[in-house]
């Protein structure tokens, strides 16, 4: 590792001129500017499963939006062919009332997605508020708020639906109420634990010493930093809501005919399992694929947001 006299390179004398450090602070400015969300997007876009999931979701959303509009059939009108197998004119076949299953399936997608997203948004609003207030207040307030949440989770949603059906017509509204009554608790728990973690971070203390009030701290520090966990929980809530909707509709507690939802379609299809299996097959595939896609996206988001992978 040491040089002999002979090995010392010849250097032109002018090269030894002292020029000083020419480039101050080059290090920071030379680096590319990457915001947190750009980095998350980068990691997400390199997760094959998550990308497949996103493509499926985009496809399903587009189909739900446009397929019923551009189709020549209507989801509640007969086309004259009873229980016909899939064919070039009726891609998914028809049912026992001679309705086109393809159109009905995408009509059902609208309802399933609507329920899933509405439930997720209601969870989000109640859960974030409840969780951040409980976490930030701490002590007795926290204790009481979380015990209320515990009591709510102890009530089975099936019971809630049945009770609601006593006073209401079965349909979308009681189902969304039933899903939301207990659904937000999970979100509240997650937000609370994030808040507990974040609220003692030095940057929150710093904000306090600057004179920030609780609202400012929730808005500027807690929510942006808990956003990752909130997003992941949301993407995981949607499929479970869709699944619950299908399940309730299958039991006949969900949306009523002639409205189509994947659950009601599967329920009716099940009755004709041997004679017309496509009637069960297509809604069942759609339910599974959608739930898989949401879960894949949720997992991908969680991995992309995981701070342990951050450099």
């Amino acid at each position: 590792m040491n040089l002999d006299k002979k090995q010392i390179p010849k250097i032109a004398p002018e090269m030894f001129e002292v020029v000083g450090n020419q480039s101050q602070e080059t290090d920071a400015l030379a680096k590319k500017q990457v915001s947190f969300w750009k980095e998350v997007f980068y990691r997400f876009s390199h997760n094959k499963l998550a990308i497949v999931g996103s493509i499926i979701l985009i496809f399903i959303a587009l189909m739900a939006a446009f397929a019923p509009v551009f189709s020549s059939y209507n989801y509640e009108e007969s086309v004259g062919l009873y229980n016909s197998a899939p064919s070039a004119t009726h891609w998914f076949g028809t049912d026992d009332l001679a309705r086109d299953i393809f159109v009905r399936a995408w009509e059902g997608a609208r309802i399933s997605l609507f329920i899933g997203i509405t439930a997720a948004i209601i969870d989000l609003i109640i859960g974030v508020l409840w969780g951040s207030i409980a976490g930030l207040a701490g002590g007795r307030v926290d204790n009481i708020m979380m015990r209320i949440a515990d009591v709510l989770t102890a009530i089975p949603y099936l019971l809630v639906v049945i009770i609601l059906l006593v006073v209401m017509e079965p349909g979308l509204v009681p189902m969304i109420i039933a899903l939301s009554i207990t659904g937000w608790v999970n979100m509240a728990r997650i937000v609370r634990s994030e808040v507990l973690k974040i609220k003692n971070q030095e940057y929150v203390l710093a904000a306090r010493t600057l004179g920030a009030n609780n609202w400012h701290i929730i808005k500027r520090h807690l929510v942006p930093n808990a956003m990752g966990a909130i997003l992941v929980t949301m993407t995981m809530t949607i499929p479970s809501a869709i699944f619950t909707e299908s399940f309730l509709s299958y039991l006949g507690l969900g949306v009523q005919a002639p409205l189509a939802s994947w659950g009601t379609m599967a329920s009716e299809g099940f009755k004709a399992l041997t004679s017309a299996p496509w009637r069960l097959l297509f809604p069942a595939i759609l339910i599974s694929v959608t739930i898989f896609a949401f879960n894949a996206v949720g997992d991908g988001l969680r991995d992309a947001l995981d701070p342990k992978l951050r450099k």
Binding site: V18, V19, N21
Partner: peptide, 14 residues
């Protein structure tokens, strides 16, 4: 060299 106030020309070259 970029942090050396007395850096020489050669320091940036080789």
């Amino acid at each position: 060299a970029p942090r050396n106030e007395q850096a020489m020309k050669i320091d940036f070259e080789m």
